[in-house]
Amino acid sequence: MTADFTNKLHAGSDFPIIEATLLSGEVRTLSTPENGLDWTMVVVYRGQHCPLCTRYLNQLESLREDFANTGVDLIAISGDSKEQLESHMEKLNISFAIAYGLTLEQMKALGLYISDPRSPQETDHPFAEPGLFVVNNEGKVHVVDISNNPFVRPELTALANGLAWIRNPDNNYPIRGMHK
Protein backbone atom coordinates (compact mmCIF):
# COMPACT_ATOMS: atom_id res chain seq x y z
CA MET A 1 0.00 0.00 0.00
CA THR A 2 1.30 3.44 -0.88
CA ALA A 3 0.49 6.59 0.98
CA ASP A 4 -0.07 10.04 -0.41
CA PHE A 5 1.73 12.66 1.61
CA THR A 6 0.58 16.17 2.27
CA ASN A 7 2.84 19.09 3.00
CA LYS A 8 1.73 20.37 6.38
CA LEU A 9 2.43 23.99 7.21
CA HIS A 10 4.89 23.81 10.12
CA ALA A 11 5.03 26.06 13.14
CA GLY A 12 7.58 28.81 12.57
CA SER A 13 7.37 28.62 8.78
CA ASP A 14 6.35 31.54 6.59
CA PHE A 15 2.62 31.63 5.98
CA PRO A 16 2.10 31.46 2.20
CA ILE A 17 0.98 34.55 0.33
CA ILE A 18 -2.64 33.76 -0.50
CA GLU A 19 -4.99 36.39 -1.83
CA ALA A 20 -8.67 36.00 -1.08
CA THR A 21 -11.78 37.77 -2.27
CA LEU A 22 -14.27 39.13 0.23
CA LEU A 23 -17.98 39.48 -0.57
CA SER A 24 -17.42 43.19 -1.16
CA GLY A 25 -15.06 42.28 -4.01
CA GLU A 26 -12.05 43.51 -2.04
CA VAL A 27 -9.00 41.30 -2.47
CA ARG A 28 -7.06 40.73 0.72
CA THR A 29 -3.92 38.79 1.58
CA LEU A 30 -4.98 36.23 4.19
CA SER A 31 -2.04 36.76 6.52
CA THR A 32 -2.10 40.57 6.49
CA PRO A 33 -3.75 41.95 9.63
CA GLU A 34 -6.06 44.92 9.42
CA ASN A 35 -8.00 47.04 11.88
CA GLY A 36 -4.79 48.34 13.51
CA LEU A 37 -3.83 44.85 14.73
CA ASP A 38 -0.51 43.10 14.16
CA TRP A 39 -1.31 39.35 14.13
CA THR A 40 -3.89 37.48 12.05
CA MET A 41 -5.92 34.37 12.73
CA VAL A 42 -6.92 32.61 9.51
CA VAL A 43 -9.82 30.22 10.00
CA VAL A 44 -10.47 27.79 7.15
CA TYR A 45 -13.93 26.27 7.31
CA ARG A 46 -15.59 23.57 5.22
CA GLY A 47 -18.34 25.70 3.68
CA GLN A 48 -22.00 26.59 3.93
CA HIS A 49 -23.02 22.92 3.96
CA CYS A 50 -21.44 22.42 7.41
CA PRO A 51 -23.65 23.36 10.39
CA LEU A 52 -20.70 22.90 12.75
CA CYS A 53 -18.78 25.51 10.75
CA THR A 54 -21.69 27.93 11.00
CA ARG A 55 -21.79 27.47 14.77
CA TYR A 56 -17.98 27.84 15.05
CA LEU A 57 -17.90 31.07 13.02
CA ASN A 58 -20.74 32.55 15.06
CA GLN A 59 -18.92 31.59 18.26
CA LEU A 60 -15.77 33.20 16.88
CA GLU A 61 -17.72 36.44 16.43
CA SER A 62 -18.69 36.35 20.10
CA LEU A 63 -14.97 36.37 20.98
CA ARG A 64 -13.85 38.80 18.25
CA GLU A 65 -13.24 41.58 20.75
CA ASP A 66 -11.15 39.30 22.99
CA PHE A 67 -8.92 38.45 20.03
CA ALA A 68 -8.71 42.12 19.00
CA ASN A 69 -7.70 43.11 22.54
CA THR A 70 -4.79 40.70 22.12
CA GLY A 71 -3.83 42.27 18.77
CA VAL A 72 -5.21 39.40 16.64
CA ASP A 73 -7.28 40.19 13.55
CA LEU A 74 -9.69 37.55 12.18
CA ILE A 75 -10.44 36.30 8.69
CA ALA A 76 -12.31 33.16 7.62
CA ILE A 77 -12.29 31.46 4.22
CA SER A 78 -13.67 28.40 2.44
CA GLY A 79 -13.68 26.94 -1.03
CA ASP A 80 -17.29 27.99 -1.51
CA SER A 81 -18.33 30.17 -4.43
CA LYS A 82 -19.48 33.75 -3.98
CA GLU A 83 -23.10 32.60 -4.34
CA GLN A 84 -22.63 29.92 -1.68
CA LEU A 85 -21.08 32.44 0.72
CA GLU A 86 -23.91 34.90 0.07
CA SER A 87 -26.39 32.16 0.96
CA HIS A 88 -24.38 31.21 4.05
CA MET A 89 -24.38 34.81 5.30
CA GLU A 90 -28.09 34.38 6.07
CA LYS A 91 -27.04 32.00 8.90
CA LEU A 92 -23.96 33.90 10.00
CA ASN A 93 -23.95 36.82 12.39
CA ILE A 94 -20.36 37.96 11.96
CA SER A 95 -18.51 41.24 11.46
CA PHE A 96 -15.00 39.93 10.78
CA ALA A 97 -13.70 39.45 7.23
CA ILE A 98 -14.89 36.36 5.39
CA ALA A 99 -13.71 35.23 1.97
CA TYR A 100 -14.60 32.65 -0.63
CA GLY A 101 -12.96 30.73 -3.44
CA LEU A 102 -10.05 28.98 -1.70
CA THR A 103 -8.60 26.82 -4.49
CA LEU A 104 -7.35 23.25 -4.29
CA GLU A 105 -3.82 24.52 -4.84
CA GLN A 106 -4.17 26.98 -1.96
CA MET A 107 -5.66 24.26 0.28
CA LYS A 108 -2.64 22.08 -0.50
CA ALA A 109 -0.23 24.97 0.15
CA LEU A 110 -1.76 25.27 3.62
CA GLY A 111 -1.44 21.53 4.20
CA LEU A 112 -5.17 21.11 4.73
CA TYR A 113 -7.05 17.87 4.44
CA ILE A 114 -9.38 17.95 1.45
CA SER A 115 -12.63 16.00 1.10
CA ASP A 116 -15.05 15.24 -1.70
CA PRO A 117 -18.74 15.88 -1.09
CA ARG A 118 -20.84 12.86 -0.12
CA SER A 119 -23.58 13.97 -2.50
CA PRO A 120 -24.50 16.89 -4.79
CA GLN A 121 -26.87 18.06 -2.04
CA GLU A 122 -23.91 18.57 0.32
CA THR A 123 -21.89 20.76 -2.05
CA ASP A 124 -20.62 20.80 -5.62
CA HIS A 125 -16.83 20.87 -5.10
CA PRO A 126 -14.00 19.34 -3.07
CA PHE A 127 -13.62 21.29 0.16
CA ALA A 128 -11.01 21.88 2.86
CA GLU A 129 -11.48 20.35 6.26
CA PRO A 130 -10.97 22.81 9.14
CA GLY A 131 -7.70 24.60 9.66
CA LEU A 132 -6.69 27.45 11.93
CA PHE A 133 -3.49 29.46 11.62
CA VAL A 134 -2.31 32.29 13.82
CA VAL A 135 0.24 34.36 11.91
CA ASN A 136 2.51 36.65 13.91
CA ASN A 137 3.81 40.10 12.98
CA GLU A 138 6.78 38.52 11.16
CA GLY A 139 4.50 36.49 8.86
CA LYS A 140 5.39 33.26 10.67
CA VAL A 141 2.92 30.54 11.66
CA HIS A 142 2.81 30.92 15.43
CA VAL A 143 -0.11 28.54 16.08
CA VAL A 144 -1.45 25.87 13.73
CA ASP A 145 -4.33 23.43 14.01
CA ILE A 146 -5.32 21.19 11.09
CA SER A 147 -8.14 18.65 11.33
CA ASN A 148 -9.44 15.99 8.99
CA ASN A 149 -13.06 16.39 10.12
CA PRO A 150 -15.40 19.05 11.50
CA PHE A 151 -15.61 17.56 15.00
CA VAL A 152 -12.10 18.49 16.15
CA ARG A 153 -11.27 22.20 16.37
CA PRO A 154 -9.60 24.49 18.91
CA GLU A 155 -11.89 25.59 21.71
CA LEU A 156 -12.11 29.32 21.05
CA THR A 157 -12.22 30.66 24.61
CA ALA A 158 -9.12 28.64 25.52
CA LEU A 159 -7.44 29.85 22.32
CA ALA A 160 -8.25 33.50 23.06
CA ASN A 161 -6.85 33.13 26.59
CA GLY A 162 -3.80 31.27 25.32
CA LEU A 163 -3.02 33.93 22.72
CA ALA A 164 -3.32 36.63 25.38
CA TRP A 165 -0.76 34.71 27.43
CA ILE A 166 1.54 34.16 24.42
CA ARG A 167 1.35 37.85 23.46
CA ASN A 168 2.17 39.05 26.99
CA PRO A 169 5.84 40.19 26.76
CA ASP A 170 6.44 39.12 30.38
CA ASN A 171 5.97 35.48 29.33
CA ASN A 172 8.53 35.52 26.48
CA TYR A 173 6.72 32.53 24.95
CA PRO A 174 8.34 31.27 21.73
CA ILE A 175 6.76 29.44 18.82
CA ARG A 176 6.27 25.85 19.97
CA GLY A 177 6.69 22.64 17.96
CA MET A 178 9.79 23.64 16.05
CA HIS A 179 11.35 20.14 15.86
CA LYS A 180 10.70 18.54 12.49
Rank of each mutant, 00 (worst) to 15 (best):
T2E: 09
D4T: 01
F5H: 13
K8T: 09
H10R: 14
G12E: 08
D14R: 13
F15G: 00
F15P: 02
I17W: 13
I18E: 14
E19N: 15
T21Y: 12
L22D: 05
L23D: 08
G25D: 11
G25Y: 12
V27N: 13
R28P: 00
T29R: 15
T29A: 14
S31V: 07
P33D: 11
N35C: 01
G36Q: 05
G36H: 05
D38T: 13
T40F: 02
T40A: 09
V42S: 06
V43M: 10
V43R: 01
V44T: 04
H49Y: 00
P51K: 04
P51W: 08
R55Y: 06
L57P: 01
N58P: 07
E65D: 03
N69T: 06
T70C: 11
V72R: 07
V72S: 10
I77N: 02
D80P: 03
K82T: 03
K82W: 12
K91D: 15
N93K: 11
I94H: 00
S95T: 14
S95L: 03
F96K: 01
F96R: 03
I98E: 07
I98W: 10
G101P: 10
T103K: 14
L104A: 09
Q106T: 01
M107G: 10
K108R: 15
K108D: 14
L110G: 05
L110C: 08
G111Y: 05
L112P: 08
Y113P: 06
S115G: 00
Q121E: 13
L132Y: 06
L132C: 00
F133V: 00
F133S: 04
F133L: 04
N136R: 10
E138A: 14
V141L: 03
H142E: 15
I146C: 02
I146T: 06
N149A: 14
P150Q: 09
F151K: 14
F151R: 14
R153I: 02
P154K: 06
A158E: 10
A158G: 05
L159V: 08
N161L: 10
G162W: 11
W165L: 12
P169Y: 07
N172G: 01
N172F: 05
Y173F: 15
Y173K: 09
P174Y: 00
I175Q: 10
R176E: 09
K180E: 10
K180H: 15
